[in-house]
Simulated assay, not measured.
Amino acid sequence: MKKPDAEPVIARNRKAAHDYQLGESWEAGIVLLGLEVKALRAGRASLVGGFAIVENGEIWLHGVHIPQYMQARWFNDGSRRKRKLLLHRAEIDKIERKVNESGLTIVPLTLYFKDGRAKVEIALARGKKTWDKRQALAEREATREVERTLNRHLKGKPN
């Protein structure tokens, strides 16, 4: 039996692109408990409000919501506990250096399974100001309007 090509995405942080200017990204393993893996396989998680911090040479993921696995009888612990991310030492040092120098934030973008293991894509991000967000929305709306007008023109419909 052939494995599917696409990795099943469990959760995606769509709000991150709106709230932050995203930079370099990395794929990291994540340390989970057995019941958390079962809850993820059920497709239930939320990355909104999540962030990562470098503490004592390790990267910890905070604020990611993995709900309780309802079929479990006991040991359903906190759903927003901090979880350790697994990266190479050189990558951790590089991320820590950039966070300390530039004042960037580490934000989770997607949570997915790859070869049976839970992975999280993290990125360095700089917070957007309110006017940046409004400007991005205005640009997106302008490009949509241009595409609509072009499609109408190609179909021979009046504006």
Rank of each mutant, 00 (worst) to 15 (best):
L150G: 01
L150D: 03
R117E: 12
E139R: 13
K119E: 06
G116K: 13
G116C: 08
E147R: 07
I122R: 00
L150R: 12
E141V: 10
A125E: 05
K128S: 06
E121W: 02
G127A: 13
K119T: 08
V146N: 04
K133S: 08
K129W: 05
Q135G: 06
K129G: 08
E141F: 07
E121P: 05
T149I: 04
L124P: 03
R117D: 15
V146A: 12
A125T: 05
V146D: 09
G127R: 08
R134H: 12
V146E: 11
A136R: 12
V146H: 04
N151Q: 11
E141C: 12
A123M: 01
G116F: 09
K133M: 13
G116A: 09
R117M: 12
Q135L: 14
L150K: 05
L137R: 15
I122S: 00
E121S: 04
E121V: 09
I122Q: 01
L137F: 11
K119G: 07
I122M: 02
R140G: 11
A118V: 13
K133C: 13
K129D: 13
R134I: 14
E145Y: 07
R140Y: 10
R152F: 06
N151V: 08
G127V: 13
A118K: 02
E147M: 11
G116L: 10
E121H: 10
E141H: 07
E147A: 07
L137M: 15
T130K: 14
E139A: 08
W131Q: 14
A118G: 10
A138T: 15
A123R: 02
L124Y: 11
Q135D: 15
T143I: 11
V146I: 06
R144Y: 09
E139K: 12
A136P: 01
V146G: 01
K119C: 13
Q135H: 08
T130D: 08
A125M: 03
A118I: 06
E145W: 01
R144F: 09
R134A: 09
W131M: 11
A138Y: 11
V120L: 04
R144P: 00
K133Y: 05
A136E: 04
R126E: 12
L124G: 02
E139D: 08
A138W: 10
T143S: 15
L137S: 09
K129H: 05
L124I: 02
E121M: 04
K129M: 06
A136D: 13
R144V: 10
G116P: 14
R126Q: 06
E147F: 04
R144L: 13
E147L: 05
D132Y: 07
A125P: 06
R140S: 11
L150C: 00
T143K: 11
L150S: 03
R152C: 02
T130R: 12
G116E: 10
K129F: 09
L137K: 15
A123G: 06
R117H: 11
K119M: 05
L150M: 01
R126I: 08
L124V: 10
R148Y: 03
R134C: 05
